[in-house]
Each structure stands twice: as structure tokens, then as C-alpha cells.
Amino acid sequence: MKKPTFLLSILLFIILGLFVTRVVISNTISTSGVALGQMQDELRKYKIENALIREKIFTLSSLSNISSEAARIGFSGSKSNFALSKTHPIAAAR
């Protein structure tokens, strides 16, 4: 008669243990959906920020913008090119 009681106690203990584990784990992951949602919102926010910064970079680094800013600051284009030719080596000079 002792053996069935012992087995029942063990089973009961296991059931209780699993129940407590389940409660603890459910509790822990119950808010992960919210956290995941928050992370996705932040991700979306950074993606939008990146896209806006990218737009700004493109506009500022465009040649049309650089050209007008350069003119405003006082840069002017080079007017003439010239080539420097090498002097002849001594042996070839006569």
C-alpha cells in the first residue's frame, strides 16, 4: 500500500511543478509581444529616419547644389588648362 501512495505523491509533485513552471514562463513571455511591438515601431522609426537622412544627403551632394553653393561661397571654375612638357634628357640634347 505504501508503493502506490509514493507513486501518486511523485506524480502530484511533477504536476504541481510543471504547473508552476508554466505559470512562470507564461508570465515572462506574456509581455514579449508588447516588447516586440515596441521594437518593430522603433525599427520602423529608424528606417524612416534613415530614408529621410538619405534624401537629404542626396540633395546636398548633388552637383547642382554643390555648384550653386560653390558660387555663393565665391569659388570660380578654372579658365584655362596648360600642359607641362618634360625637358629633354642630357644625352639627347645637341
Binding site: 524612416i48 534624401e55 542626396f58 540633395t59 551632394s61 548633388s62 552637383l63 547642382s64
Partner: peptide, 13 residues
Amino acid sequence: EQEFERLYPEASM
């Protein structure tokens, strides 16, 4: 509602 629009950074180039 977010959507995407064409951007031409070099304007009329």
C-alpha cells in the same frame, strides 16, 4: 499612410 515617391536629387539634370 506611408508611400514612396520618386526623387530626382539632381533636379532637371
